[in-house]
């Protein structure tokens, strides 16, 4: 049972961050390698809030949203938008994405070191321990948070004028601007939300893994696997993708590490990796890219014919 709960908690983190990864991908078609570091920024914001302001990590969720959201917004305004304006191609944007990742991760290392020396306490490998020994409260909180965020994001994107405009702007920027939508602002909002959600995911991370400046980066593989599984251009595909990846990794390694295989649990990342590679090679556009209707009708026709 504990394994299932742990898998759920892990999946919540993956889901929250993958939604953002997909959201930034559809704005500029660039895979944001720095997305994992945005998760780490959220974790460190919660830690800083807990240590310096004395509030609980949960109370720091809005702060983490803002901090990671601002970092994402800054990378949009300072890196991607200027490059996009200069007509940069996909490879250039990817090099920029890799550079941004290096900058953010190195900055997190600097931050951790500076805080460690100035506060005389460790800012690496930290964990949020829950008081009162209630081990599973963060699982409940992270699940409720994930559900609330998914629902409100859905309502925002489909039921508000601004949300529909945002979808319109990412689908067809030139048409959107021709009907009066400020595409640039819509993209900026997408990056803000994407970063913010990564920050929220980051708050939950230190509840289950010792966190340091590299932890979020290590999640990138899972996020990409989740986003690709759901379809890199389908925001809510990332929700399904995230749960599939998170659950199959935790439950999968639980099964593989037991008898008869007794595999080391350190090979965990191989599971999302295998899923990612297989997916990319058979359905590179993700599950949403598969033409289900055609596939189903072909299968049913096959059944009729054989019957």
């Amino acid at each position: 049972m504990n394994v299932v709960l742990d898998a759920l908690a892990f999946s919540n983190i993956i889901v929250l961050s993958s939604i953002g990864l997909t959201l930034t991908y559809i704005t500029l078609k660039v895979p944001n390698f720095a997305h994992g570091d945005l998760v780490t920024i959220g974790a460190y914001t919660a830690l800083a809030a807990a240590r310096l302001l004395g509030i609980t990590p949960y109370a720091a969720i809005p702060l983490a949203f803002i901090a990671s959201g601002m970092a994402a917004l800054a990378s949009y305004y300072l890196v991607y938008r200027p490059l996009d304006r200069r007509g940069a191609g996909i490879v250039t944007l990817m090099i920029a994405s890799m550079s941004t990742e290096v900058i953010l991760r190195a900055s997190l290392h600097i931050f951790a070191d500076v805080m460690t020396t100035s506060t005389k306490s460790y800012w690496r490998g930290f964990l949020f321990r829950e008081e009162g020994g209630q081990l599973t409260s963060y699982i409940v909180v992270s699940t409720i948070t994930a559900i609330l965020i998914i629902i409100s994001l859905y309502l925002f994107l489909h039921r508000t004028k601004y949300g529909v405009a945002l979808r319109a702007a990412v689908e067809n920027p030139s048409l959107a601007s021709a009907i009066g939508i400020d595409v640039d602002k819509a993209r900026a909002v997408s990056w803000l939300i994407a970063g913010g959600l990564a920050g929220v995911a980051g708050v939950f991370m230190p509840f289950r893994t010792p966190t340091d400046p590299e932890t979020g980066w290590a999640l990138l593989l899972r996020m990409f696997a989740a986003s690709v599984l759901g379809g890199l251009d389908a925001v809510f595909g990332a929700v399904i993708g995230g749960y599939v990846i998170g659950l199959s990794e935790v439950l999968g390694i639980y099964l593989l590490s037991g008898p008869p295989l007794n595999l080391s649990t350190a090979y965990r990342p191989a599971i999302p990796f295998a899923i990612l590679v297989i997916l990319l090679l058979i359905a590179p556009r993700g599950l949403s890219g598969v033409e289900w209707r055609r596939l189903l009708s072909r299968m049913s026709r096959g059944v009729v014919r054989s019957g």
């Binding site: 319109a168 689908e171 067809n172 959107a176």
Partner: peptide
């Protein structure tokens, strides 16, 4: 070309 939002 592309004069409507296809996904809407």
């Amino acid at each position: 070309m592309n004069n409507v939002f296809e996904r809407l």
